[in-house]
């Protein structure tokens, strides 16, 4: 029996992958809201390559396929990356640092961007989804497969607790992220739009029905207190740049999450303290967790890993 600790995106993907291979699994949910609850739900490995190392881009390559096979809410609409006229140097830099894009007229893809930006980078192979709906779907699938959620672990522990595993993983640190959700009835975007800015980059992920997730700050801090006024102002002024109708949006939610991160910001599988860890998702949980879960399932079925 494998006991998966933590029901964030890492724990749910691991439990799913193991269960699908026919391995006996139980889930032990922690008391905290997982960092993945606050995620944007972008399945954008190419864009992440702007600052993430090639390992992360590689891990994320098939993430959208993995989610699509299990969850019917993956939207294969690609990503548009834009910058205001005076920040065109940022667009050039982004294009240089990433692959899998071409330059387009954004109005051809999102009518609402007509006249706002003369050009954009388009990443056609990327997708997005509602991460909370995706996690709910995995939870339901696990329940349907008879995977029990228990209080006390009985089997070999696979620790996916995120930041709570700092007691076992001393090099795990928090990177604070702040986000918001708005209802902007007058804005019609169907795909992720990233706005590049030297100081306040942001992205908008459509959730449908005029709801948009706006994210996200990156602060080297383990303070999980409410969103700061600065973060709110910066992100709102950034989306206002994308479309002025965001000024009339209603603010539905703000949130703060702490991303569990290793010093190299690369998610990984580790063995430590007599247990297996899948941790350090940083900002790549929805991209990396499926890959690492399948990798772990491979190793366990082939008997390549035995942390007991």
């Amino acid at each position: 029996m494998y006991s998966v600790l933590g029901a964030g995106v890492a724990g749910l993907c691991v439990a799913t992958a193991l269960s699908e291979r026919g391995l006996p699994v139980e889930l032990v949910a922690g008391p905290d809201i997982p960092a993945s609850h606050w995620a944007g739900g972008m399945l954008a490995p190419m864009c992440e390559g702007e600052s993430a190392p090639p390992e992360v881009v590689h891990m994320g390559k098939h993430a959208a396929d993995w989610w699509s096979a299990r969850f019917d809410g993956v939207h294969w609409r690609g990503t548009l990356v834009v910058a205001s006229p005076r920040d065109q140097a940022e667009l050039l830099r982004f294009a240089r640092a990433t692959r899998g894009h071409h330059t387009v007229d954004p109005a051809q893809y999102e009518a609402d961007l007509k006249g706002r930006f003369s050009r954009a980078l388009y990443f056609p192979e990327e997708a997005h989804m509602d991460p909370r709906a995706a996690m709910a779907c995995l939870r339901q699938r696990l329940a349907d497969r008879g995977v029990a959620t228990v209080k006390t672990p009985k089997g070999q522990i696979i620790d996916c607790r995120g930041l709570a595993a700092r007691d076992q993983l001393p090099d795990l640190r928090a990177v604070r992220g702040e986000m918001l959700v708005v209802h902007a009835a007058d804005v019609h975007l169907t795909r992720t739009v990233r706005l590049l800015h030297p100081r306040f980059p942001c992205y908008v992920v459509p959730r449908g029905h005029g709801i948009y997730m706006i994210g996200a700050t990156m602060v080297e801090s383990d303070d999980d207190g409410p969103i700061t006024a600065r973060a709110l102002m910066e992100m709102l002024s950034a989306v206002y740049t994308i479309h002025p109708a965001f000024a009339e949006a209603q603010l539905l939610e703000t949130g703060t999450g702490l991303r569990p991160s290793f010093p190299d910001n690369i998610p990984c599988i580790r063995e430590a303290g007599g247990r297996i860890h899948v941790n350090g998702m940083y900002r790549h949980g929805y991209l990396a967790a499926p890959y690492l879960a399948e990798e772990l399932a491979d190793r366990l079925t082939k008997g390549l890993m035995n942390a007991s």
């Binding site: 640190r173 928090a174 602060v219 080297e220 801090s221 383990d222 303070d223 600065r230 010093p263």
Partner: peptide
Amino acid sequence: RREGVGGTAFRDL
């Protein structure tokens, strides 16, 4: 200024 007291882990690195 922005990281405040919560930035200990980064400062240790």
